[in-house]
Amino acid sequence: MSKGPKEAGMTLIVKTITRLTVGLILLYGIYIVTHGHLTPGGGFAGGVIIALSFIHLTLAFGKEVALKKLSKEGTSILDSLGALIFLAIAILGFTGGYFFLNFINKGVPFRLLSAGIIPLCNIAIALKVGAGLFAIFMGLVFLKILDKDKK
């Protein structure tokens, strides 16, 4: 099957399935992140799943499509932003006297809105991990492409 430059990526079957599932994968990642303090999972696992949804997109459609959704600079910014949010939460703990103090009302256990700063930390970690992992993947892929061009 000949492919034009615009039709980079895999076959029609893969593309169709991907179109259906990518959103679900992203949503599942977000679910894992937001329920990190209740069920297994959390910022890291959820972040990996979020990154996987973008990597999935890259594999199926080629890097142009994925980079249109989330550019390389965008990942870098999100990456730093995640870390800064985490640090800001930690520093805000000083309001109660301690670095990393859990300063928000802890609420009732086993509710979605409970456990003080932990869900916020999870979100920050997810941003960091998701963007970081996607950036690592893209970095390695780009390096390889650059290598091929030189040959």
């Binding site: 890291f44 991990v129 690592i136 970095g139 390695l140 390096l143 390889k144 650059l146 290598d147 030189k150």
Partner: peptide, 24 residues
């Protein structure tokens, strides 16, 4: 171990990218 895995992910990614550069 989760923390250690993240660290080893970082090291592995760095080493792999170094290896690619060396191959280059």
């Amino acid at each position: 171990v989760l923390t250690a895995i993240v660290i080893s992910l970082g090291v592995t990614a760095l080493v792999v990218s170094l290896a690619i550069r060396i191959y280059d």
